[in-house]
């Protein structure tokens, strides 16, 4: 099965060395190190408040108030600025969907904001992606009328779009499986497998158990052992 390898340079490495983070003068985690390259899945585990979301925000570069360093292809991420930000897609707890716009407008907006958006028929393309999570009948509906679960799935559709047109090399997902039914859970897992096989990688936090047949590593917070599963 020929996967169109990602056009960007195939090899990439993301290493964090002895990261420590304090919030309100309390130690959240100390001297955390990890090292993942392409075609890997990093599973960040730990109870609530162990700093999972903070670690993800540090990796995305949103949170800068930490000690230690994060290197992408051996370069600190803050010096890379936009180049680094074009590599990954971050989905946090918030769905990032504007309530007063329809589903199509929302997804169209995010597609317009990314460098790779040479899609000739964007509306029908998004509609086909919406089908994957059984949302295609909601295209024109205002997001304010959608339920929380539907909003979550609209946000996840961005992953399908990103995988389809190879927008990103790295997904940083914070609890993506929350409020998903069993069928949705399955489709998302297959999507992740397909995404990793294309030479990309995923950083993930989740309370549910995920079995994706790809080299997975776990990083348990706040102690921070980095082990290969």
């Amino acid at each position: 099965m020929d996967h169109n390898r990602n056009s960007l340079s195939p090899i990439f490495s993301l290493t964090g060395n002895n990261l420590s983070f304090f919030r309100n003068d309390q130690v959240i985690f100390r001297n955390i190190s990890f090292d993942i390259s392409q075609e890997k899945l990093l599973f960040v585990t730990g109870q609530n408040g162990a700093g999972k979301t903070s670690l993800l925000k540090i990796i995305t570069g949103l949170q800068r108030d930490y000690t230690g360093s994060i290197l992408f292809n051996k370069q600190p991420i803050h010096s890379l600025q936009e180049a680094y930000r074009s590599i990954f897609l971050y989905l946090g707890h918030q769905t990032a969907i504007t309530k007063n716009q329809s589903v199509l407008e929302n997804l169209q907006f995010y597609m317009n904001l990314s460098p790779k958006n040479s899609i000739n028929a964007p509306k029908s393309f998004i509609k086909t992606q919406l089908q994957k999570l059984k949302l295609d009948h909601l295209g024109e509906i205002l997001c304010s009328q959608l339920s929380a679960g539907q909003l979550r799935r609209v946000a996840l559709t961005r992953l399908f779009i990103s995988n389809e047109i190879n927008q990103h090399r790295l997904w940083i997902l914070d609890e993506p499986f929350v409020s998903l039914d069993h069928k949705g859970f399955e489709t998302l897992q297959n999507l992740m497998e397909d995404f990793i096989k294309k030479g990309n990688s995923i950083i993930l936090t989740s309370h549910q158990h995920v079995n994706v047949d790809a080299p997975t590593y776990t990083l348990d917070l706040p102690e921070g052992e980095f082990t290969r599963v």
């Binding site: 949103l62 930000r85 074009s86 946090g92 990032a96 969907i97 504007t98 309530k99 904001l113």
Partner: peptide
């Protein structure tokens, strides 16, 4: 509140 501002921070521009 709905997180779009955070996404605006993370696009490559």
């Amino acid at each position: 509140e709905d997180g779009t501002l955070e996404q605006l921070y993370l696009i490559p521009y």
